[in-house]
Design a protein around this nucleic acid. Structure first.
Lengths: 105, 105
DNA sequence: ATCATATGTTAGTTAAAACTAACGTAAGTG
DNA sequence: CACTTACGTTAGTTTTAACTAACATATGAT
């Protein structure tokens, strides 16, 4: 269950929003927290830690700031699983096509 | 947040195991439940419902049996998100390459 | 050295998800 | 019809995850 931590880390609305937020441009923790209303800064900080521990974001320190950005490599195993799931769809289509083929050879 | 239900449905070890289990071959509920020890049949039944509601498996009835199998289409939005995340890695590599290029034109 | 800024951490509380036990249902069998 | 098989459902409990409030740390400025 290698990619399970990845899924769990993504399975929370605030954390998923953070991931999308730091997808292209890196952002300091405070700025990330500022984007949410109804969620306190410490809560965001905890979410950032979970994302970091799961290897989905990197943290870089610049002075007193901590700057986060997406770490795409962290998603690789999950991506592979989904591709595997997707393949099962293609396999079925292929099997269905071959079945049709047999009927008028 | 269209694919969020997908992520949540996957974010539980038993459910993830079920998804892998019905990836290629369809299976009746009882047989699925039988594969787990330490998890009761009703619990598995509840997990199946969550997976079905999320559109990740289909249910087919055959006599008194309910047969489940993977529904790959259900993963499409999440798959797209991960591909989008992955792109951000490629974009960075491209940007880095272009930077190098400029140094000896 | 003092203060401000930016952020993380911890213990304790609250909220959400999973589980259990008991019951309900629907198809198949004698 | 009575009984069995194969499931699902519900209410209530337990477990897990998220949140809050108070405190801690580390950098930078005066």
């Amino acid at each position: 269950m290698i990619m399970f931590e990845t899924i769990q880390a993504m399975a929370e609305p605030t954390r998923l929003a953070i991931l999308k937020m730091v997808r292209r441009r890196e952002m300091p923790a405070g700025q990330i927290a500022g984007k949410f209303k109804g969620i306190t800064r410490p809560a965001v900080s905890q979410h950032l830690r979970i994302l970091k521990d799961a290897g989905l974001v990197t943290e870089r320190r610049e002075g007193t700031r901590r700057i986060y950005r997406l770490r795409p490599e962290g998603f690789a195993p999950l991506k592979a699983l989904l591709e595997d799931f997707w393949d099962s769809k293609l396999e079925r289509l292929k099997a269905a096509a071959e079945k049709l083929e047999k009927r008028k050879p």
